[in-house]
Amino acid sequence: MRITLKLYATISQHLPAGSVKNTVEIDVDDDASLHDIIDKYNVPRELAHLVLINGVFVCDADRDQGGLLKQDDVLAIWPPVAGG
């Protein structure tokens, strides 16, 4: 299935060619876990701090679980960041 992957800040270097504004569409297996995708794009797991599916946070314990993603979902990932 096809989803949108977004990588920001210091992990944006792991985006594949063809990405625009930190965003790229990718094909993933239907049962892919978030860690499968994070590993595939060589994002160090410890830097995948803020992991959101359609804007909703997924905690580390759930990132090995398949079936969380569905067609056209947006997976957005940040390293530890903050502002104010």
Binding site: K6, Y8, A9, T10, N22, L50, L52, G55, V56, F57, V74, A76, W78, P79, P80, V81, A82, G83, G84
Partner: peptide
């Protein structure tokens, strides 16, 4: 994070959520 991107790193985060 803060030295490289400043507080502005939040723009995409807060939009996404």
């Amino acid at each position: 994070g803060l030295p490289a991107y400043g507080t502005q790193v939040l723009m995409n985060v807060i939009n996404e959520v």
